[in-house]
Simulated scan of single mutants.
Amino acid sequence: MKVFAVLVLALATASAGLLPQSGIQHPRDRTSVPSIEGRITNGKDAVADQFPYQVGLSFSSSKGSWWCGGSIIASNWIVTAAHCTDGGSSVTAYFGATVRTSPKFTHTIASSDWIQHESYLALTVRNDISVIKTPTLAMSSAVNKINLPAIASSYSTYSGKTAVASGWGLTSDSASAVASKLQFVDLTVIDNSVCKKTFGSLIVTNNVLCVATPNSSSTCQGDSGGPLALDGTLIGITSFGSADGCEIGAPAAFTRVTSYLTWIKSNTGV
């Protein structure tokens, strides 16, 4: 992602507000060798069955492996970030895990069974969403779907609402130890106009949702693709944060789910 700033500057226009004041980085890319170490920074331990929709995703490719999160949206579909599926050849999905290494069960899925948004653009983080088809899941208190917002003519911005993010990302910018338990943190949605002051309007479009990260509480490496939920409804997919770190107080950004409800329905029927 170090080339990002150079490439964006090449697109510079007269409006400085288009350009990010801080570099961006996907949580997947926060370490030079992507791993499954760590958890959400300054989060809390989840209890069993607290987030039955949370999935752990271990991606593999010829160039290495990486860890992401995802959300169950139907008995045979997971939604995650496009930057998680990008370049992958297969993924092992961990279902029903509170302790990361002790899922209720796993499924290994080939890339032919996922759909990455056809207009995903890494440079400006556009359309950062993918869906993964799974074998039919047996739903239970430990493994269950999360609701999607209802398709409507207009949607809430969610500004001022407090939502919950969950995942197995890093505990801090310097963390190296594996966290055994799923983590969660409550984060307040901010207006996009505030988020643009950090990342610029080229990055923060209407399809992006941002949260404040006070007290060094944020999503971090390993949380990519995971859920941001409000009252049992999926409103965001962990997408990117500041390249300067997870604990610096910069906004964290998510793919805004309401912008992709039609795309999800057309590709999955959900």
Score class of each variant (00 low, 15 high):
M1K: 04
F4T: 15
L7F: 10
L7V: 12
G17K: 08
L18R: 08
L18W: 04
L19H: 05
Q21V: 11
Q21I: 13
S22V: 13
I24L: 13
R28Y: 13
D29W: 13
S32Y: 10
I36M: 07
A46V: 09
A48I: 14
F51S: 04
Q54V: 09
V55E: 02
G56R: 05
S58T: 09
S58G: 07
S60F: 05
S60D: 11
S61N: 05
S62A: 15
G64M: 04
C68R: 11
S75P: 10
S75T: 15
N76P: 09
A81V: 14
A82K: 06
C84V: 06
V91A: 05
T92F: 08
T92K: 08
G96T: 01
A97P: 09
A97E: 09
T98M: 06
T98D: 11
S102E: 14
S102L: 13
H107M: 09
T108S: 02
S111Q: 04
Q116W: 07
H117N: 14
S119D: 15
Y120W: 15
A122Q: 15
N127C: 10
D128G: 14
S130P: 11
S130D: 01
L137C: 03
V143M: 03
I146D: 00
G169E: 14
S172D: 02
S174F: 12
S174T: 15
A175P: 09
L182M: 11
F184N: 03
V185K: 02
V185H: 05
V185S: 08
L187G: 05
I190P: 10
S193L: 10
C195Q: 00
C195M: 02
K197W: 04
S201F: 03
S201N: 00
L202K: 03
L202P: 03
T205K: 06
N207T: 15
V208G: 03
T213Q: 04
P214M: 12
N215W: 08
N215P: 13
S216N: 12
S217I: 00
S218G: 02
S218Y: 01
S218Q: 04
S218H: 01
T219L: 13
T219F: 11
S224N: 00
S224G: 01
P227Y: 12
L228T: 07
L228S: 03
L230D: 01
I235F: 08
G236E: 08
S239R: 07
G241E: 01
C246E: 04
P251D: 06
A253Q: 07
R256A: 10
N267P: 11
N267Y: 08
